[in-house]
Amino acid sequence: MIQFIHVYKAYSPAHYVLQDLCLQIDPGEFVFLIGPSGVGKTTFFKLIYREELPNKGEILVAGFNLKVLPASKLPYLRQKIGIVFQDFKLLPELNVYENIALGLQILGYPVAYIKQKTCELSEKLDLERKLNSKVGTLSTGEKQRVVIARALAHQPPILLADEPTSNLDARRSLVVIDLFRELNSQGSVVIFATHNRDLTNLVPKARIMELREGAIQERK
């Protein structure tokens, strides 16, 4: 599903965030990407959804070779990926409902389905009373849950979650991880990036990748 072949990534010359990265993630895997902040977790995700291109090496995602992917096909790569952005990236002009529904709108789902899916997720994430609020008025934790709902709504084959529970209490974090596991059980790849190693205990079968000094080490 995701393949990195000798990938190098640097933002400034000579300082590599990722160095000679080789890895393969298969459908149905639940992966924790752990490492302290600043180590390159977000960069790793950006390479997957092709916001950044590697300086060297090749990346294959969901059958697309990102190196030769034309701009016109980029949306179809991204439609296969659900992203919980670390910085949320919500549309302030829209309300909670519209933000959650946005991904489904983009994929052209019928209105009734969008409504059902959005309400279902907002209920699970405790957002149903906020559906009509503009996202600007929400607390950080609420915003984070909106982003999670938006990323899950279209049941993407790949879910990239960048510190998705950083602003949530323990109870809500558990709910979120359960939602991720539910998606994962249907065959989707879930990559959960966090600096909090303790979270890995919540998903016993998960694969754990530790990012350190530009390289990935697998942990049991």
Binding site: L74, R78, I81, I106, L107
Partner: peptide, 11 residues
């Protein structure tokens, strides 16, 4: 943001 969510240019 819409582009990151997979929106086509036409959309």
């Amino acid at each position: 943001i819409m582009r990151l969510l997979g929106a086509t240019e036409g959309f």
